[in-house]
């Protein structure tokens, strides 16, 4: 039987839209201030920072709220390494939402990074060096 054949069983009629009923713990709005502070620091000193969302007592609803509030910006990158990782810039440039999935597709860790470009996206000089060697090989093949 296909799963989508399951009708939605309403176990609880929704009562009201109070924050608590939606599972909000009230911890998410505080994070916005912290992010603002970190963004200021990035501008002042160029220092990048990160917040481990798993290390905070956030409910899934909190995370949804935060994700919705921060929104999606113009840049999104996907990294394929032992499972997919997504690095999405929020509507606040410099604030990135980073989600690492494991090989099974489950979320392994989740961060907010405040940086111009996430470290993970940058190519490492060693890798660039190897790339250069590869390029030179390609060029030498041309002749």
């Amino acid at each position: 039987m296909p799963l989508d054949a399951i009708p939605i069983v309403v176990i609880n009629p929704s009562e009201n839209s109070a924050a608590a009923d939606r599972g909000l713990s009230g911890n998410a709005p505080v994070l916005l201030r912290e992010i603002a502070q970190l963004t200021g620091r990035l501008l002042d000193s160029g220092e990048a920072s990160a917040i481990d969302l798993r290390a905070l007592p956030l409910t899934p609803a909190d995370l949804d709220w935060l994700r919705e509030t921060l929104g999606r910006g113009q840049v999104a990158a996907t990294l394929e390494a032992e499972g997919e990782s997504t690095l999405t810039e929020t509507v606040c440039p410099g604030v990135w939402w980073v989600t690492h999935h494991n090989e099974n597709g489950a979320v392994a860790s989740e961060f907010i990074e405040v940086t111009f470009v996430p470290e993970l996206l940058k190519a490492h000089p060693d890798d660039v060096r190897i790339g250069l060697e590869h390029l030179e090989l390609l060029i030498s093949d041309l002749s």
Binding site: D52, A81, E82, N102, A108, S109, E110, F111, E119, L120
Partner: peptide, 14 residues
């Protein structure tokens, strides 16, 4: 290196 950094980030989180 990217995989490794990701692994370390996740391990640290855990």
């Amino acid at each position: 290196r990217r995989t490794f950094m990701k692994y370390c980030a996740t391990l640290a989180s855990m």
